[in-house]
Design a protein around this nucleic acid. Structure first.
Length: 441
DNA sequence: GCAAGATTGTC
DNA sequence: ACAATCTTG
């Protein structure tokens, strides 16, 4: 076999698409056979949220169809990602492995192990962009390894030239005699957290439909409606981005075409911002980014009430119940519920972040824990003592209480002003807990 | 040492 | 729109 005929393995991780996939596009350009491979890692399978495993199953089935349309297939294995990749490499005589660069501690360790194992077999490992719009490490401040403050990052992010998006390969050739394996049917039987009844389904095909509808209609109103809890007028593309069913670059380029979508593009920069923080500080999910002397409390019963959406503070409970019901929470509600747990109950951000991570379909290490630390005051906020007035937030972002009523049925009949603070009503609603607050607001 | 004023950063 | 922090007289 000549060198050019030796296959390239494209190791898919959370970049489950064929369009604008630099690692796949580069593999197709090499010219020989391509082995699109996904390894269902045992550790990932046991630790992931059921809601994400459910989305993952959808995404893998869709990716397989897309690859088959191109003449290839998705090769699926289970076990340890590096071991299984090397097994496929041995069976096919692959010369190189392509994968997308990713930032979590888990991803960094996986890439490191992959490089070591590949070196033993004289194979190349090449990492490609695609998980973020601007790759971590490409926008770097003078005199530092990463941006610690969002606004300077935003300026650098916005003004730099982005790479050109890649087309899906025209045609893929799979090495012959390779067992493709199957996508497990009941992926969400393992994993942690609930399987939410209204969780989002996924995959590139569906994600692209959602993206087109968003850009076509609602993105232009984003600036004025994104904080309206009841309007539910955010993109809902977070899980699609989390699994890479959408290219964040393609989305950002398309959104940038509409002047009114500026504020939405800025949110995509926040996503990149947290990724470049995580790349430089991989312990983001475990340790204070900035060490603060905060007197955390254990408050197990308060934490349990928060998880269940039974704190007695309607806007908090509405958010927490939306999370359980949908595997998703409105961004504004994420800020409110996280502020309640860390600032009011004084429960450590790590416990809140872990709960979110066990439920969210879009649960992403960099975004989730970066935002939790931001709210808790240990992260990248320049104003770490920021405080949320919960009642003001509730009245401002859910003025007629429609969000609360939608998610907290005990309050469905509550009067206009009482829906935000039912403990003030002459007759507080039955079956709804009294608030875990030491003072109003 | 202090207050007015400028700057900074914003989820 | 606004508050925390930094600069200046």
């Amino acid at each position: 076999m000549s060198v050019s005929e030796r296959p390239t393995i494209v190791l898919f991780t959370r970049d489950l698409r064929v369009r604008d996939h630099p690692a796949l596009a580069a593999a197709a350009r090499v010219g020989g056979p391509v082995v699109p491979l996904f390894v269902l890692d045992r550790a990932v399978r046991e630790r992931s949220a059921r809601n994400r495993l459910s989305y993952l199953g959808d995404a893998l089935r869709d990716l397989r169809e897309e690859l088959r349309r191109l003449g290839g297939d998705l090769v699926v294995r289970s076990g340890d990602t590096v071991d299984e990749t090397m097994r496929v490499a041995a069976a096919t005589g692959a010369a190189r492995v392509h994968l997308s660069f990713d930032v979590s501690a888990f991803a960094a360790r996986r890439a490191e192990r992959l490089r070591e194992a590949a070196a033993d077999r004289r194979m190349e490992v090449a990492e490609f962009p695609g998980v973020t719009v601007v790759p971590p490490g490409e926008a770097v401040p003078t005199g530092g390894d990463h941006y610690k403050v969002f606004t300077p990052y935003w300026r650098a992010w916005e003004s730099r030239e982005w790479r050109a998006p890649e087309r899906a390969p025209k045609r893929l050739e799979l090495p012959s005699g390779l067992d493709a394996g199957s996508v497990p049917k009941r992926l969400a039987d393992s994993g942690t957290g609930p399987l939410s009844p209204r969780r989002q389904s996924g995959g590139e095909t569906e994600a692209r439909r959602r993206m087109a509808a968003w850009l076509d209609a609602d993105c232009a109103d984003y600036e004025h409606t994104h904080d309206d809890l009841a309007a539910d007028a955010t993109s809902r593309l977070s899980a699609d981005l989390r699994f890479g069913c959408l290219s964040p670059l393609e989305l950002a380029l398309a959104a940038r075409e509409h002047p009114a979508c500026g504020p939405f593009v800025r949110q995509l920069a926040w996503r990149d911002f947290h990724h470049q923080v995580c790349a430089a500080f991989p312990d983001l999910a475990h340790r204070d980014y900035r060490e603060r002397d905060i007197a955390w409390r254990s408050d197990d019963s308060g934490f349990a009430a928060w998880c269940e959406g039974r704190t007695g503070v309607p806007v908090v409970d509405a958010g927490m119940r939306q999370l359980l019901d949908e595997g998703f929470m409105h961004n504004r509600a994420r800020l409110i519920t996280a502020a309640f747990l860390t600032k009011r109950l004084r429960v450590h951000w790590k416990r809140g972040g872990d709960h979110f991570h066990a439920v969210l379909s879009d649960g992403d290490i960099a975004d989730n824990y970066g935002n939790w630390q931001w709210v808790a005051g240990t992260g990248n906020d320049t104003r770490p003592n920021r405080s949320f007035n919960l009642l003001r937030q509730s009245r401002r972002f859910d003025p007629d209480g429609a969000y609360i009523r939608r998610h907290v049925p005990e309050l469905a009949e509550a009067a206009g002003t009482e829906v935000h603070a039912p403990w003030r009503a002459e007759q507080p609603p039955t079956g709804y807990p009294s608030p875990l607050l030491d003072e109003d607001g």
